[in-house]
């Protein structure tokens, strides 16, 4: 499976957001786009997901893929219940028969079964984000994109949600893309860390972690070394 970006360019007016970027997502695993806010990471994944056009360059292997996307904000329909919000992304395709069981299955995964008839405004921030995660997982796209999915969440909640996603990855495999500027998130979850800078977005460094994602990692020396490296990058 070839998933590559070659000399990608994108600008908004005179502002160059991405300029001659080359990246490789071919290897299966959780790929982390690590970099400061405003460096163009979100623009890059939106281009990959086909939501915004790019100016020039070559993107291979992404155009016939489907995407599950966990946004920074929940982006739930305020007038629909939790259940209807998840059905919303399913009903365009022919899941029809087992739609109810899919919804129940993923709501129980994020511990929200009892809330399926609640409206988003009746839920807390963390619960809404869990709905958004359940929606992305239920949709079962070929590629899962997560754009700072744990932003502004309580530490315990963050850990729980990370576990959901790591569990899901162990079952499904494939390509996950995680955007973050948090070294802990990156080190806990990623198989590949692409250290980025910008704008314009450029690739500074690539780190490969060949341990399975999860909590067990935190004790390993090598991870500590990576952590220092990433934290240096932030303070720079």
């Amino acid at each position: 499976m070839e998933l590559k970006i070659k000399s990608l360019h994108k600008s908004y007016g005179k502002q160059k957001v991405i300029s001659g970027l080359n990246m490789d997502f071919s290897s299966e695993g959780i790929h982390c786009l690590f970099g400061p806010s405003g460096c163009g990471k979100t623009t890059l994944v939106n281009i990959l997901a086909g939501v915004i056009p790019y100016d020039s360059g070559d993107i291979q292997g992404f155009n016939n893929k489907s995407f599950s996307y966990i946004f920074q904000e929940e982006r739930l329909l305020p007038w629909a219940t939790v259940e209807k919000n998840i059905k919303f992304v399913l009903e365009s395709y022919n899941h029809k028969g087992d739609i109810d069981s899919i919804v129940d299955n993923y709501l129980s995964l994020v511990d929200l079964e009892e809330f399926k008839n609640y409206y988003p405004k009746e839920l807390s921030g963390g619960m809404k984000q869990r709905v958004s995660i359940a929606r992305a997982l239920a949709y079962d796209g070929d590629i899962l994109i997560m754009d700072e999915p744990f932003k502004g969440l309580h530490l315990n909640m963050k850990k729980t949600l990370m576990d959901y996603i790591i569990d899901y990855w162990h079952r499904k495999k494939g390509l996950f893309i995680l955007i973050t500027h948090d070294a802990d998130e990156a080190l806990c979850m990623a198989n590949y860390i692409h250290v980025l800078e910008g704008p314009p977005l450029t690739l500074k460094k690539e780190i490969v972690i060949d341990e399975p994602p999860g909590k067990a990692r935190s004790g390993i020396d090598k991870i500590q070394k990576y952590r220092e490296m990433l934290e240096d990058k932030i303070t720079e």
Binding site: G50, F67, Y69, F71, E73, L77, W79, F88, V89, S92
Partner: peptide, 23 residues
């Protein structure tokens, strides 16, 4: 943002109309 979300999830136009525009 909701329209963008529906685009990512490739929701059919008629469903976007019914579920997002009408409400």
């Amino acid at each position: 943002k909701l329209i963008e979300m529906s685009k990512v999830y490739r929701i059919k136009k008629l469903i976007i109309l019914r579920r997002i525009y009408l409400p």
